[in-house]
């Protein structure tokens, strides 16, 4: 490993925790600015001013979350993952669609009403067609209205934060809602006599 550049803090988390962390923040800012530009280099919808905002916000986030850094990666790698999350979360907000909770609930209800259709199911895919019908049945039988709405939003590509916001909950609770829903659906298929292995082979080849 090359020797550290002069002025580069050797112990990142500690130098950022210190009362006189000004110099460490300057170095962190420089690195995050370069790295975020690389992370966003294939996006044409991001302005220079936005990148500056993301860097500023990322520094605040890194400082407030220092305790989450467990030392299992390089510190800069961890800080970069925080910065990427800050930037992408913000950019996803632009993709928020004009959807109401009612519309989401309605979309969730659709999941139970019509067959879960795929393009031209081939003759050999009877097992898959049967499992998809069983899945539709399970969505109707075992999921709550909120779970159906969350699944519909997730599948239709709504940013997860928008689903969370429409449901009036938080990310962890919404993730649990979805996770519980997936487990309930899988249990239904297994209770119907299909092994976990077959479900995997058919649905996740």
């Amino acid at each position: 490993m090359p020797p550290p550049e002069p002025g580069l803090p050797l112990d990142w988390p500690e130098s950022l925790r210190a009362a006189d962390n000004g110099a460490a923040i300057v170095v962190l800012r420089t690195h995050l600015a370069v790295r975020l530009r690389v992370a966003l280099s294939d996006r044409t919808d991001v302005s220079e001013a936005q990148i500056e905002d993301f860097v500023q916000e990322s520094i605040l986030r890194v400082l407030s979350q220092l305790d989450r850094y467990a030392g299992r990666s390089r510190f800069l790698t961890w800080a970069t993952s925080v910065a990427i999350n800050v930037a992408f979360t913000e950019l996803r907000k632009k993709r928020w669609q004009d959807v109401s909770l009612d519309a989401l609930v309605e979309a969730g209800r659709h999941l139970t009403e019509e067959p879960l259709a795929e393009e031209a199911p081939s003759g050999g895919d009877e097992e898959r067609t049967r499992l998809l019908e069983s899945l539709r049945e399970a969505i109707a039988l075992h999921l709550t209205e909120r779970q159906r709405a969350a699944i519909a939003g997730e599948l239709q590509g709504l940013p997860f934060d928008q689903v969370v916001s429409l449901l009036g909950t938080n990310r962890n609770a919404a993730y649990k809602l979805l996770h519980d829903a997936r487990l309930a659906l899988r249990r239904h298929l297994i209770a119907g006599g299909t092994s976990a292995e077959t479900i995997r082979t058919v649905f996740a080849p």
Partner: peptide, 22 residues
Amino acid sequence: MNPLSPQQVRDLARFVALTRDR
């Protein structure tokens, strides 16, 4: 919102197949 596209149905099936208790 639209009904699920074939790709979205495939995603749903994959999520159900891959989910784990933890």
